[in-house]
Design a protein around this nucleic acid. Structure first.
Lengths: 208, 208, 208, 208
DNA sequence: GCATAAACGAGACGGTACGTCCCGTCTTAGA
DNA sequence: TCTAAGACGGGACGTACCGTCTCGTTTATGC
């Protein structure tokens, strides 16, 4: 079908402005943090009037979530030959991602704001979180094809519960390690964590 | 020997005011969230002048961290007879704690603010996080005395790394489950998660 | 030739707001006096945000001086046929003006503040005081054309000194009578004062 | 009858403190002006607690008027041999007094505050203004004994009106010259002003 | 090629909260 | 009882951003 072409009259919105605004938002977020980031400052960095921001996003939250969402799409799951190696690889990737200031600040800030804003919460979930679950799914299928994990039982709900648990364990542990404990995700820690996770998987799958 | 008695001149600060302010802060945090919480509102709730807040805390961040810290001291580790039962118990307790609005909001907000404020970060670490590591330590000793875990090797650094890993896994996973995935920590999930963790422990301990 | 048209960008300032603010300032000054007049209150009376005040005036002093300056422009010097009658007329007018609460409060307050603020002092001098010297000049020319006073000698500095002296005597005496002595400027007092002044003029002009 | 001896129990008030407070008030008034003078600052300069100020004066106004009143008692009227010389002498003295910063600031500030505070107004009138009218009285009697002015008629009210007028003219003109016009009271100006006043006196006395 | 219409920059607007300063009162301990 | 010290409730200050609202100008499209 292709994109719907709405021929509208008047001057079209500038795509340059969009890009400049999102980039400026990420930059400001790193330098100032959520609380000190101001719309006026973002506009100035982007070389754009404040009005232009408000024509595109209703408020600060929406703008920041959009500015941040793309950052989390770079995670990949190359085939490293075994389930353990795949997990260890994604743990290290995720660690590197979260140690970058813009990602670190953005994720926590946006989650914090969401704790009392259901709309923002679901926006985050769809724009950021759910998109990463594909990695767990890919890993599981690959492990099954290698014979490292049993095939799915007849219960798809059980499989989903399992995937969600693993996702929470990996994402949660790495986030906590970096943002709360303030320790780095280095290869030796990733190795130990992977051992724990992969070692526990068989037991977990019988309880899910 | 004993506490130093500093005889200070002038009218002493009111301990009632301290308590009222911290309670008002927690209440306001629940109702309004971090972003909408204002010092003036907290002062009014506490029946106190705004200046009285600023005499005690330099700004909003410091006040909120102090107000929140006490909430996390209620976690206990009663002996339930086995390592798995102990872990499951603390996971459920922590889940309940985090599902309360004041804890949920407070923790994330404070962590988010801390991502660009090293002083605040260390204040959180000392006032909130490190104090909970006692639970992991207690659990490990108890499991060793039951024979569920091997005695410490000669390497105390290894033991510390292990404890930190387990702490990050438990705290991180529960936090992620509730705050990011937005799912409840109910008994069946706690059971599955505990199985994963306890099942993986032996493997983890050989890699730490 | 003609006024320079400065095309400025952005939304222009509201002239209505200017007027409303100045009027509200005068009203508040009468009701509350200088010390109790607050910027927030003026803003509220004017139906305007406090920021709108601060966009136009740097502080309370500047605002009040501007608000007050206009009041003194209503003094006129109609031709009453003789120098004595002209002087008596302006003394009575000035007396009436100064017995109005807003003028009374405003003038003293503003002069008092100015005693330790050179900038404010010169602002007052230009905005209020110097503009009234026109009255002395008009009166002198009129008296000369009537033959009541000799024509200017060749020394313009002498004429200026004379005018300034007369201005200080009239303004100072009326102000002191009303604000310090707290007595009214009624016709009989005005008559006596005029007799003193006009009687002394020939002597003064030979010494200036 | 002498001072009333009230034998009171407890520690007596310190007379040193009184002196130190009044001196500190005058000093602060010069440096800061009325508007910026604060009770806390005065207390600190005087080496005294704020409480001690409030035990002696009810508020800022009362304190400042008392601190300032004494300054105006130094005017004298030595006999210079003629009415004109006496007037010129007191004009120059008053000019010098008003050019001192503490007097200048104090007088205007206190008058300004008084415009909306009747109590303060009468306190000023009694403590400062009326005490100076003795000078006019002395000068008049001396001129009469020299034969420069006619003896009092049978109408004492007329004499009083006359004295008040002369007082307003002298005080008002000098104050206006210094505080409003911002020009100095130098000998040549004093000479011209005296000529005006003395030249006008005969005419004024027939109208009073 | 000229009218239409939306986007654009600039910046003023009504608001809200900030953190500071000072007021005048109060509560301690000590002289 | 007075004093020094300093905490207290209160209120205004002047600042910083918010998100909205005019303006005059620019830039596409469609008649």
């Amino acid at each position: 079908m292709g994109p719907i072409l709405v021929t509208r009259t008047g001057r079209p919105r500038s795509a340059d402005a969009d890009r400049a605004i999102l980039a400026a938002t990420r930059q400001a977020l790193v330098e100032l943090g959520w609380g000190k980031l101001t719309m006026g400052d973002v506009a100035a960095r982007a070389g754009v009037a404040k009005t232009t921001l408000y024509r595109r996003w209703a408020n600060k939250n929406e703008l920041v979530v959009d500015a941040v969402a793309a950052l989390f799409d770079e995670l990949r799951l190359p085939d490293r030959g075994s389930l353990a190696a795949d997990v260890e690889g994604v743990v290290l990737q995720f660690g590197e991602l979260l140690e970058r200031p813009e990602t670190k600040t953005a994720l926590m800030a946006v989650v914090a704001e969401s704790t009392h804003d259901p709309g923002l919460r679901s926006r985050i979930r769809h724009a950021i979180v759910d998109r990463q679950k594909r990695l767990v799914e890919t890993g599981r299928r690959r492990a099954q094809s290698r014979g490292e994990l049993p095939d799915d039982t007849g219960d798809p709900a059980s499989a989903t519960r399992n995937a969600d648990l693993i996702f929470d364990v990996i994402a949660g542990t790495v986030v906590h390690r970096i943002l709360v404990s303030g320790e780095p995700v280095d290869p030796s820690w990733a190795h130990a964590f992977t051992a724990l996770l992969v070692g526990g998987l068989p037991a977990a799958m019988t309880h899910a």
